[in-house]
Amino acid sequence: MGELRFEELRGEWVDYAIHRQERTFLPSEEHCPLCPTRPGGEPTEIPFPTFEIAVFENRFPAFESPRGAAEVVVYTDRHHDSFATLAPERARALMWVWRARYEELGAREDVEYVLIFENRGVEVGVTLHHPHGQIYAYPFVPPVPTAERAADARLGGCAPCALLRRELEDGRRVVYENEHVLVYIPHAARWSYEAHVVLRAHRPTLLHCASTELDALAEALQALTRGYDALFEQPFPYVMAVHQAPTDTGPERAGHLHVEFYPPLRTAHKLKYLAGSEQGGGVFISDTLPEESAEALREAVGRAE
């Protein structure tokens, strides 16, 4: 069981999950714990010879009942796939899995925020290469959704709705769009190739989406991640985070479903580091302009279609 401590200077929680120090670190393919268990082979986390999508409670949880939860979502039993290379049907199925886990975890009394995310690439600290994401169910509302609520109050309504309109009017930072979803590099992106994948209609969570919207979301996410891989013609590292309404019992349950990507690369071979200004002052310094990055990424998304 971890320990939560409150850091007064920044006004934020820090989670001490020291058992995670012992977690499996970059195993070879034959020792991958997320592969299916082959007949006569080493037992893995999934004791079946094949599967489509598997979800299980993390063996090394950052949060666990009765103070939240930590789950692993395995996208496929194929070790060398990625989100981008999943069959379209599997990507659509994944949206429904995310929806089901948000609903079940969010209904728990000890869960106030459900964060679905994926870390891809050793550059962002991945310890298992098998295609998978994670879910953290926090026993409090974290700083990012709290800031999003504050943005709603500042803009006098749904902030993602307002920002979406602004990006549509401007158009220079749009990298992909379909009937229900817009993908753009935001006006004030922190990362060179940061992208926001936003439902056009106001949908607080995956639970509010029609099945056609979930299909469109899967399509947009795959178009973007394929574009990322095409950008520098190499597997593109990123952190992907699904933003939805908090599940606390507060008076304000507003939110607007969108998925944010934070890729650490600023060129094919150079990483953006969080250094003095970012860590000491909380101010991102960017070496690139969102409009120029969007042009390159839009071209890569088109090339990867």
């Binding site: 986390e45 599967f51 489509e52 409670e57 429904w96 929806r99 099945s211």
Partner: peptide, 30 residues
């Protein structure tokens, strides 16, 4: 078998008590 939209799912408990859920796409909204 449990359903969630177009998914069929089965729940298991691992030997150490952890939850495991396997999802299968049916393509039909249940």
């Amino acid at each position: 078998m449990e359903r969630s939209g177009p998914l069929a799912l089965e729940r298991y408990r691992k030997a150490d008590g952890r939850l495991l859920i396997l999802y299968r796409w049916t393509g039909e909204d249940g």
